[in-house]
Nucleic acid binder design. Structure first.
Lengths: 197, 197
DNA sequence: GTGACGACTGAACGCTTGTTCAGTTAACAC
DNA sequence: GTGTTAACTGAACAAGCGTTCAGTCGTCAC
């Protein structure tokens, strides 16, 4: 038996990537075999190679898609000219975007080392671009005197680590919903960048 | 040829664990083979089984040792009765301890999922114990009115994520040394838990 | 000098890995 | 109805996996 019913090329490709995402997040890139991914889709391992040249590309595609989406989506979310509002917007965007894509975030942080140098450099550069968005806000706010920040680079990294950490413990249906969480983190972020009393 | 010179049993065991630590941190647990670990030590793969019953135990030993050390070491570092001083001490201890053990921290966060349920539960519980130390400080400080914290649980998780994030970018000989970094993070932590101006 | 023992080798075990490819079949164009 | 093609199977490939174990050989106690 070969094709089962109708043409599947436009649906199998995404399904393979979705299965890979799920399994990579659950077990790690190296611990997942092409056969497991194929089984999740309901297909033989060989079929995957109609859509992807090798296993590495599966991971690279997922990460690349994640970073591209992240950079494209944040652009319209950041108001110009008001650093405090921009920081607030960044926090809420970051938490919302990441909580909606926990698996993607997870593998993008965990499996960087599984990438070949070329892909590694690309993803690292894109992540740097994203962090620059926040650093820009902090620098602008410091220049305007609305923030009091000793080292914008460190504060950027501290904030991003703090925000991304949410994905490690957030569970849907838990004590707090996404809105509550975003409120808390926005408040903490605001305190971090303002002068102490 | 068997033994090369002198008795090695008390040195080979630690060397195997050290090699495993290095390689797990570099490539991930699943991506490292027993033969690679053995080669790093200068021994055949079979020799590892004189020291460890299976690969999984190698990982579990490393994580267990890390968490035990962490919990034992923090105890004498936290002053009683002064939440602000305790928070400061916690921040400095956490950063110092983690920056001295970047590889251990890395695999303890990354490879949790590679543990079998029994080991997973153990490590997760130990980590919870550690986080409780910080949460206790925050709760005490809030009770005493020196902190202003809406949700101690969330602030705990936010602080720990922020602090542990340092291990992702710190490089020895970089722009800032450990002391500078600890100062910055201590200041940020203080702001996070105090009422905004 | 002899015997016991601990530390290690090296080969082997059955299995799984990523990847390739000739062959099969449903769907579509004409 | 025929021919073409896209989608997929299923078997095969060499390589590598974790683990076991009989055998080898320094070292030490007596």
């Amino acid at each position: 038996m070969a094709r089962k019913q109708g043409s599947h090329s436009d649906i199998t490709g995404p399904r393979i990537h979705a299965a890979a995402l799920k399994l990579f997040a659950e077990h790690g890139f190296a611990a997942v075999s092409m056969r497991q991914i194929a089984a999740e889709v309901g297909v033989q391992a060989g079929a995957i190679y109609n859509y992807v040249p090798h296993k590495q590309a599966l991971l690279a595609n997922l990460m690349r898609g994640h970073m591209d989406g992240l950079l494209a989506d944040i652009e319209p979310h950041l108001p110009e000219g008001d650093p405090m509002a921009a920081l607030d917007a960044f926090v809420r965007f970051h938490i919302g975007y990441h909580l909606d894509r926990v698996d993607l975030v997870f593998i993008s942080y965990m499996e960087l080392r599984a990438l070949e140098p070329e892909n590694f450099d690309l993803i690292t550069r894109l992540r740097g671009d994203y962090e620059k968005r926040l650093e820009r806000i902090l620098i602008d706010g410091t220049r305007d005197g609305v923030f009091d920040i000793a080292d914008p680079k460190i504060t950027t990294l501290a904030l991003i680590a703090m925000l991304t950490g949410v994905t490690n413990w957030y569970r849907e249906g838990g004590r707090l919903d996404q809105g509550d969480i975003a409120d808390h983190y926005a408040a903490m972020a605001r305190r971090m960048v303002c002068a102490a009393p």
